[in-house]
Design a protein around this nucleic acid. Structure first.
Lengths: 146, 146
DNA sequence: GCACTATCTTACGTTAACGTCATTTCGTCG
DNA sequence: CGACGAAATGACGTTAACGTAAGATAGTGC
């Protein structure tokens, strides 16, 4: 029952990026391969591919840096650790601090997303108006040869 | 009835950028100052400031390069020329070609905007769910000290 | 076992979008 | 008019996010 794994090239092709990008994201501490072959070749699984596609969406749509993405992922990982070892009696205040940090962070991200959506809607409207005026211009151009 | 003009620093402060950015955008052919003083100091007017804030919005919200922005602005300028000298009997086919090019270009931009908005909405939903789960976790943490 | 292609690691190269001097000239205010 | 803070014009520096090339292994099909 070994889960499905992918080579570097398979992942790259699937996400429409290059192997170099995978290496780079690993250098930056954003991801790490699920495992390696005896010879040292990287093997990824669905979980990592999912994470990667999230990273790419954040980068592309949200336009934030890999550094900022890393901060989000780091807190998420800490949170995951917290869920897994939930029963462990590590300092409760410390747990709460991680949770609060995450909520704060995401609140900021969501606010940013909302701003962006609002701005994009405005731009869309603006561009649509320009297109409309240009279509009108085109119409009047057609009536010019009479 | 000379229109209001602004110095480099005034514009920079107003748009929250640096003078260097203004110089750079001018180098790239994105803008040019309305006029200059006898001594060569740049003077901007409201029109240029408006254009600049559009450029910044495109860059920030749309996340496109200055190069792509320039292409849009170039076609807009050609279109403006066309409106101004509308009566001139320059080749009608040429006019139509400019108009069509602009409509094509903006259609692409608008499509991109729509994609982006859709993607951002998805991400927003995803993040909101994560926040919700984390808030739940926090609640269960509060019940831990009993 | 061998040929051939994919990967690995290391390291230097590249591009966009400015930042940061340095030097010189300009605008203006007492 | 003299000083002093902006502005101009080079020109080199910087950073993020990869690209690219090289030399050495690893994986794979026959």
């Amino acid at each position: 029952m070994g889960e499905h794994t992918f080579t570097v090239e398979e992942v790259a092709k699937r996400l429409n990026i290059t192997p170099r990008t995978l290496h780079y994201y690993e250098e930056m501490g954003l991801i790490c391969p699920a495992t390696r072959t005896a010879g040292g070749h990287r093997l990824y699984n669905d979980r990592v591919v999912e994470k990667l596609s999230r990273i790419l969406r954040m980068k592309e749509s949200l336009g934030i840096s890999l550094q900022e993405i890393r901060e989000i992922l780091d807190v998420e990982d800490a949170l995951e650790q917290l869920r897994v070892s939930f029963e462990e009696k590590i300092n409760i205040m410390e747990k709460k601090s991680i949770v609060d940090e995450y909520i704060q962070l995401l609140a900021g991200v969501i606010a940013k997303i909302d701003d962006k959506i609002a701005s994009l809607n405005e731009m869309r409207k603006n561009f649509a108006e320009r297109v409309q005026r240009t279509v009108d211009l085109k119409t009047s151009l057609s009536n010019e040869n009479d």
